[in-house]
Every structure is written in C-alpha cells, then in structure tokens.
Simulated scan of single mutants.
Amino acid sequence: MARYRDALCKLCRRDGEKLFLKGGRCTTDKCAIDKRKYPPGQHGQRRGKLSDYAVQLKEKQKVKRIYGLLEKQFSKYFKEAEKKKGITGELLLQFLERRLDNIVYRIGFTSNRNQARQLVLHGHFRVNGKKVNIPSYNVKVGDVIAVHEASKKLNVFGENLQRQQHEGVLSWLEVDFAGYKGKVLHVPSRDDIPLTAKEQLIVEFYSR
C-alpha cells in the first residue's frame, strides 16, 4: 500500500500547527514547527490569503494526516458517515476514532499512530482474545483490546503505559494498566475527542 514516506515534520509545518505525528518529540524543543513556523518549500514564507476552497482542502488534509490515511480511505469513511443519521462531521470523527490503530494509541500502548499501525500489523494485539492485525479494524463498544501475552515483555508498552497513566485516560475508554488492556465504554461524542479540527469544513469540501 502507498504510504507517506517523507519527513513527518513537514506535514505539521504545512498545516501551521502541531499534529503530534511523532508523539512525545512534538512537545520538546526538537519540534520543527517551533523552529520554523512557516510552510516548507521555496515560497513557504510568501504564501498569501487562502480561498474558501483552499481552507476546506487544508482542513481535510490535516485530519487525514493526523489519522494517517490516504484519500481513498478517508473519502470512504466520509461516505459512510454521510449515509448515517446525525451530524456528518461528528460521525466521521467517530469512525476514525474507532479504528484499531487509533484505539491502541488512545489507550496509551503507543506514543503515536504510526507506531500503533506498525505494532498492529505485526500482530501484537488481541481484540476480545482474538488476534487482529488490521489497523482499520472497527472497534465496537464493549470490545477489549489487549497486548498479546508474549509481547508484554517489550519495553515500548511498559514505557508508553506509564506515560499514559500520568497523562490520564479519555472518558470513553477504560484502561487496566497492570493488565496491559483497555476497553471501549461508549462511542465518543465530539466533546470526547481531543482534536483541533473544524470538521464542518470537511463536510463542505465533499459537498461541493
């Protein structure tokens, strides 16, 4: 599958804000956007006012990058959200939040979504006791996500869970730090999703 392989920090600079694609590094003085608060490229410091279309496109691209998706995947989620009753933008974010790689990240097993995707692909997690190695797997309410018993010895899980325990857990998740597992309590509302995004702009982009 095609995947973005250039420097992740360029994506943050392009959007003009931290997307936290590198986890903890984004909160240190090594963060590229703190050093260069302008888009990458030869004309990065000379870009003018954006059109309405450009603003909508930029917001869509930002959310797509945060969750690490390609255009085909992202538009598929939007079409599914559009078919359901409710607020399309909020439903879109709910679909994205319930991806297995995102849940793994939100629980605190990993420091960022890229790491989560890689560890899911390598088969380090179990959903309700069964091996699932598909990052896009749709986690349902009541599902229990756990680190495979043989994988618990890896330092990455202990270190990340210790950090997450200090930072706290989202209200729609329950985490057993000692047991290396978490549970989805309910579908997150918009207020439950810590994401600085204007999803209505995404709806407007696809509704053109």
Rank of each mutant, 00 (worst) to 15 (best):
Ala178Trp: 05
Pro40Asp: 02
His122Trp: 05
Phe78His: 12
Ala81Gly: 06
Lys152Thr: 14
Gly158Lys: 10
Val187Ser: 00
Asp191Tyr: 05
Leu121Ile: 10
Gly182Leu: 03
Asn112Lys: 13
Tyr4Leu: 10
Phe74Val: 02
Gln200Lys: 14
Lys130Cys: 03
Gly48Thr: 06
Pro39Gln: 10
Gly24His: 11
Leu93Phe: 00
Tyr77Gln: 06
Phe20Asn: 15
Val144Ile: 14
Gly108Ala: 11
Glu204Gly: 01
Ile145Pro: 00
Glu167Asn: 15
Leu92Arg: 00
Tyr4Phe: 12
Gly41Asp: 12
Lys140Ala: 07
Cys31Ile: 08
Gln200Cys: 02
Phe205Asn: 06
Arg3Gln: 12
Gly44Thr: 11
Thr28Ser: 14
Lys153Cys: 11
Pro40Val: 13
Glu71Phe: 07
Glu167Ala: 07
Gly89Asp: 10
Ala7Val: 07
Tyr137Thr: 14
Pro39Phe: 03
Asp15Cys: 12
Ile134Asn: 13
Gly129Ala: 09
Val156Cys: 07
Cys31Gly: 01
Lys79Arg: 13
Lys64Trp: 03
Arg3Tyr: 09
Gly129Cys: 09
Gln73Gly: 05
Gly182Ser: 03
Lys84Ala: 15
Gln73His: 10
Gly123Pro: 10
Pro39Val: 13
Lys60Thr: 05
Ile87Leu: 06
Glu167His: 13
Val141Lys: 12
Ile33Arg: 05
Lys130Asp: 01
Asp143Arg: 05
Gly86Leu: 06
Asn128Ala: 08
Gly89Val: 01
Arg126Thr: 02
Arg65Cys: 05
Lys152Asp: 08
Leu21Ala: 15
Phe78Pro: 05
Lys30Ser: 07
Gly123Ser: 08
Gly23Asp: 02
Lys84Phe: 06
Phe205Ser: 03
Leu119Trp: 05
Glu97Tyr: 01
Lys22Leu: 12
Arg25Glu: 14
Glu90Gly: 01
Leu185Glu: 10
Ala32Lys: 13
Phe74Trp: 04
Asp52Val: 05
Leu195Val: 10
Gly23Arg: 10
Val184Cys: 02
Glu159Gln: 14
Gln118Trp: 08
Ile107Pro: 02
Glu59His: 12
Ser51Thr: 14
Arg98Asn: 06
Val144Ala: 14
Arg163Leu: 15
Pro135Ser: 08
Asn112Val: 00
